[in-house]
Design a binder for these strands. Structure first.
Lengths: 210, 210, 210, 210
DNA sequence: CATGAATGAGGTTTCATTCAT
DNA sequence: TATGAATGAAACCTCATTCAT
């Protein structure tokens, strides 16, 4: 419906004032999402919360979708970046080290703002958001797969497949736990289990002669 | 906003004709969801697709939410039922058997209508849907936990925690795979990996003296 | 911008009630145009004036443009029909008779609702309206040209060209007179001059040997 | 709504720089009109196209209407001036000479920028524009009427009426031809026909005893 | 003088829901 | 019971205009 390019921001803030405004709007979007839920997130409400007028909002975001996309992008982007960094930094390490590092990075990133994570689960499916999620998923997957290839103590028949199992399991466990309403503190405790889950699977899945 | 009881159906279809109508509407809702996406699912469109008038739709569902809730309920309910049955039927079996049975049941149920599964991911977050998902999640979790308790070859410190890891991992892997756009056929192939994932975790997590 | 098909009406009124509603809306559009001018013609105002809600308006017209197009179509259509009929009914007549008949028909049709004519001059240029005007112009032109071909007392080198001069002159004179704010009564008096204008031109333009 | 005096320009450009700016803005308005159409002509877009900021635009024009009025004024003014000059210069000439001169002047002026002529047809009706058109029309009419009075070879019962017929016919033919999408070159060819139209009418309309 | 970020009234359009037929 | 015309609140978005920098 909405052409893809319509999701980009309208103007890059040049003056300091603008930069603030844009940040305020993004943050307001999250606040409204948390306070009112996806259905009741309206551009007017977001602008109001950000302390600007609707018109201002539309100076920076061509439409509602693009605003949500930006917010989603920012959040999921951070998580993916963290994951990718962890992967990159642990090439050639033993499986156990890899797993622990990635799980740690992923969970910590998600828990940076647990409420936002949960709220955004509801936003992602919105049409264009799907494509975005897709892209980010691919990025994470690729990073994990390429890391696994370098493991000195394991070799896999189909790294892609193995990586996706691990990745999706990780995502699923964190999401499930968060959505269960568990306090972030508790979620953090899940890290150990998650590491066990991934590591034991990888050990079981690796080609045996190592 | 909408009181919980308003999500129930308006009248129980007593005549055969009514039952058909209700079924047609539910199915139409799914079709519209698939064809137009959540945002463009309107009661009028659903009614039209079902071959009835909006008025008729509102005879059976007090509001749009209740319609979506019913659809979601039906689908997720089936999956949960299948999972629960598998659990119940494999009490007191060795871990390996348990895991295989549950994974099999869960995945098969989800793949009954893979497109619908994917489409419904977008519907679930809608306010009341969250509560519904919550309930269904709890049901699945309880069934798995209680099954695991009876395993002759394993004992767990915190079955609840272990069960939720397994359950969420399962959900995550299936969801991730489906959303990646993988063909159902491929998803079926994931069953083996999923069983490995769960089983190896359970073996690693069990209290050691067995 | 707006695809052409989006200018058609949304549903054909089946019940008597609907037919009334549609008529009321069209008429209201004209009233608002006369009372407030093109710039201040809003769908809300039209609906209000028609005594229905905006929603109702949009049941019959997919957008504002289509409403205006319908009104324009109706008015200009009538004028063109009248012109075409006059042409058809005076094939093979002497030039003088032809001219008088056509001028008479055209002016009378326009003066049926002089205020509407004037108001609609402002509406026509709106993007899609241009195409519509174009079509109607072509219709009138063709009718006149084909009539002129049958004149027993004249032959023309380029009937198309001659016809368009006559037609445009007619349109221009009526429009100019109406826009000058002359009372309809006066405009009617212009008919004689208009006939003279057209006839003397045709006599001067015809190939001489008649 | 807008008081008439608000249509005047805000400051008279005294410095050369200002004069350039004003010209650039006017020209930009035309460009935008041609490229985007009346509906999508916005002050921001005009300013952008002119290479200045909106603020600057508002330094010279108190509001959008005044900008359009200025553009219209400029264009129609030229046409009227040309017409008036031709009239003034051919007092006391034979009818045929008069007609040829005026037609020539009018058409040439209009064809100076045919695209602009067409585009401006859409702008004229905008509320205040009507008054402007009115004024200009009157000017042209008066010039023609007063010229006709001096014709040595003709006398008219009602010069005003005769002049308006001629004038409106001229306007109508040129407008109709331009709006038909005919290339300017072709329109130029119409001049001869137009002269015939006007002259033969005047001959027929004059009081006979000459 | 020029800039362009900010404003916010107001326009178009949608859609869940009702109710007379 | 079924219908579908009617409703109108409320959403999204635009754009003329101002004013602090």
């Amino acid at each position: 419906m909405i052409p893809a390019h319509a999701l980009n921001r309208r103007k890059t803030p040049v003056q300091a004032r603008s930069a603030n405004t844009v940040a305020a709007i993004s943050e307001a979007a999250i606040q409204v999402l948390l306070a009112h839920g996806r259905e009741r997130l309206t551009t007017t409400r977001v602008a109001e919360r950000a302390g600007v007028s609707v018109g201002t909002l539309y100076q920076y975001f061509p439409n509602k979708q693009s605003l949500l996309a930006a917010v989603l992008q920012e959040h999921l982007g951070k998580v993916m970046k963290a994951t990718q960094r962890a992967c990159a930094e642990h090439h050639e390490q033993p499986l156990a080290t890899m797993v622990e590092a990635v799980v740690q990075a992923f969970v910590d990133a998600k828990l940076q703002r647990p409420d936002v994570s949960v709220a955004l689960y509801a936003v992602a499916p919105d049409l264009q958001g799907a494509a975005l999620s897709q892209r980010l998923r691919k990025g994470g997957l690729a990073a994990i797969a390429s890391m696994l290839t370098t493991a000195p103590d394991a070799r896999f028949d189909d790294v892609q497949a193995v990586a996706s199992i691990v990745y999706f399991a990780m995502i699923g466990v964190v999401r499930g736990t968060l959505e269960s309403g568990a306090p972030p503190r508790f979620v953090r405790g899940v890290k150990k289990e998650l590491a066990t889950l991934c590591l034991s699977y990888l050990m079981a899945a690796k080609v045996c002669d190592h």
